[in-house]
Simulated assay, not measured.
Amino acid sequence: MDGTLLDGTGEREAIMRTCRDIASAHSDLEAARLLETNGEVWRRYWPTVAQSWTLGVVDGATISHEAWRRTLSACGCDDASLARTAKDTHWRHRRDTLRLYPDVHDVLPSLRRRHSIALVTNGASDTQRANLRVLGIERYFEAIVISGEVGVAKPDRRIFGMALRELGVKPENVWHIGDDLRTDVAGAHAAGLTAVWLNRSGRLWSEGDPEGNYEIRSLTALPGLLQRPSC
């Protein structure tokens, strides 16, 4: 979902708003320093919890709270209640800044009228379920498989198999569209699906990278591909 349907550029705005809110209520804290420190905290902290978040061992709320606690502590504030407030404020601003890529609004409804669609996404249940509710796109999917709910993640072929079973379809009749070569394209191939690489940024494919059956720059190209006789 992230990078394919969900445009993650609003996350920085959510963090900036949170830092401004905290600083405006606490004169001993500066928004600019909070913002810089939060970035440093995430760079160190995220690699230590990413896998646990992906598999649902730790939920998104817990990770967010700890990141803000570390941010505030590094800025000289060890107020536990303020860390909770920062987490809640961030989640509120994050909801306000969540957005879909523009092509999703046009393509997803039309695809749903013609095809069965499943969503296979990595992440903790609380994070991804909240994203789906805020974005209002749950209704387009006949199956939703979230790694944090099932204990396996892309590129493991088993998570794709779960979606196939829910849809009642065979892998050779299914296309998987995703933006990540390692998790989406490699995982689709492992599960026997047709892999479509959604290369929004136009990055160059490198030798040794998994190779999709198709490469598109926008979801608007997908209906045309699906209408080919071989599809």
Rank of each mutant, 00 (worst) to 15 (best):
C19L: 04
R70V: 07
D156R: 00
R43P: 02
E40N: 11
L55R: 03
P109C: 10
G151H: 10
V169E: 08
G60T: 02
L5N: 04
T18G: 07
D179Y: 03
L108W: 00
L226P: 05
L29N: 02
W42N: 09
S125G: 05
I144D: 05
I117F: 06
G136W: 03
E211I: 12
R157M: 04
E166R: 15
D2E: 09
G161N: 02
Q128E: 09
T127V: 13
G8D: 09
T48R: 12
N213C: 09
R112K: 14
R112Q: 13
P155T: 08
E166F: 09
R129G: 03
D88V: 06
S110D: 14
E36T: 13
S110K: 13
E66Q: 15
R165G: 08
H65Y: 15
W175D: 01
V196N: 01
G224M: 09
K170F: 10
L167H: 05
S230P: 00
A32V: 12
L98Y: 11
D88N: 15
S218F: 05
M162T: 10
E211G: 07
A50W: 00
R157E: 10
D2H: 04
W175M: 12
E166M: 15
R139D: 15
L204R: 14
E40V: 08
S218L: 07
G212A: 15
L35G: 08
T71W: 00
P229E: 12
M162W: 00
E211R: 15
A67R: 06
S24D: 14
N131M: 10
L198T: 00
A61Q: 12
A32W: 10
R228I: 07
W53T: 01
R44E: 15
L6K: 05
G208T: 11
C19Q: 03
T4G: 06
F160A: 00
R94G: 00
D78L: 13
V152Q: 00
E211K: 13
N131H: 13
I137Q: 00
R165L: 14
D209C: 08
Y45K: 04
L6P: 04
V152K: 03
A195G: 09
D28Y: 14
G123H: 01
N38R: 13
D106Y: 08
E138P: 07
R69I: 09
T220D: 13
S206P: 06
R200P: 05
R182V: 11
S116P: 11
E172I: 11
V107D: 03
W175Y: 14
Y214H: 13
P171I: 04
A118D: 04
S218H: 11
M162S: 01
